[in-house]
């Protein structure tokens, strides 16, 4: 029965994959176009000058730095919180376990605009001022589930026996965590962290709600959104789009290679 796939099926499958990838490749091409005002195809000429222009644009660097900072802090917070939940969930059965697993997915299962507006109305109630910290608050909330998914799959695969064996041989809980749990959880956490980083780095929907109005809370995606709505130098936007794509692409690829040996693979559920 494992016959060869029919030609129409092959073509349809390939066409589907191309549909997913060609648009992204186009960005790369447009980053080199000489056409500054429109999106003419084919580009009238090719140039590398936009990389230099983008490099020298003062308004790009602060958003880039802010995005990296936000992604870093959100990832760290999500790593701690996600691992804690995964550890608790993999252990004992307790009252409210199913409700908790629902609560963790909720920030990503509900449309981003809802998480966004909910946090927007909650932040003033917590007497917080909008700023980069509130962006982190929002990002960490939906990054928890990414780390959790990766960690809980590894916990499940990890035979409970080795934790008991460690205690049996005289290790206290902290030694077991340090010498047994962490090394075995490491790649899963790294993969989860990478994905969380990628997700936070280019998140825009929740960010528009949780960011303040000033330039100090303008992340790179928000900068890009502004450029999309009110374009200034289109090729510069192309260059930035390329950089954003690369910044998210590499961690994702790394996450995949970190976890592909196991039965669970990072990223199959976003």
């Amino acid at each position: 029965m494992r016959s060869e796939a029919s030609w129409p099926l092959r073509i349809a499958a390939l066409a589907g994959l191309l549909f997913l990838h060609l648009p992204i490749l186009l960005i790369f091409l447009y980053a080199f176009t000489t056409d500054e005002r429109t999106f003419t195809f084919p580009p009238p000429g090719l140039t590398t000058q936009w990389f230099a222009v983008a490099w020298n644009r003062a308004d790009i660097w602060p958003p880039l730095m802010l995005s990296l900072q936000v992604a870093l802090f959100s990832t760290l917070l999500a790593l701690v919180l996600g691992t804690l939940v995964a550890a608790a969930m993999s252990g004992a059965r307790f009252f409210g376990r199913d409700q908790l697993s629902l609560l963790i997915v909720l920030p990503i299962a509900l449309p981003g605009v809802i998480t966004g507006i909910a946090l927007r109305s909650a932040i003033p109630m917590l007497h917080l001022n909008f700023g980069w910290q509130t962006i982190v608050l929002g990002h960490a909330t939906f990054c928890i589930v990414i780390v959790y998914n990766n960690a809980v799959a590894r916990f499940r695969r990890l035979s409970g026996g080795i934790l008991e064996a460690s205690a049996d041989l005289g290790a206290n809980a902290f030694q077991t965590f340090r010498y047994i749990l962490l090394p075995n959880l490491g790649t899963a956490l790294l993969a989860g962290g990478m994905l969380a980083f990628a997700l936070s780095f280019d998140e825009v929907i929740v960010t528009t709600f949780t960011a303040g109005t000033g330039a100090a809370s303008k992340t790179l995606p928000i900068w890009m959104l502004d450029e999309l709505i009110r374009p200034r130098q289109r090729p510069v936007t192309n260059v930035v789009a390329m950089v954003v794509f690369a910044t998210t692409f590499l961690p994702i690829l790394l996450a995949y290679y970190l976890t592909r040996e196991g039965s669970e693979t990072a990223g199959s559920g976003k």
Binding site: D168, I180, P183, N184
Partner: peptide, 19 residues
């Protein structure tokens, strides 16, 4: 607790540390 008992176990699935 287990870590303070001078008793060691050979587990059924051996539970060797894979790393």
């Amino acid at each position: 607790p287990p870590h303070l008992r001078n008793v060691n176990t050979v587990f059924q699935d051996y539970a060797l540390f894979p790393h």
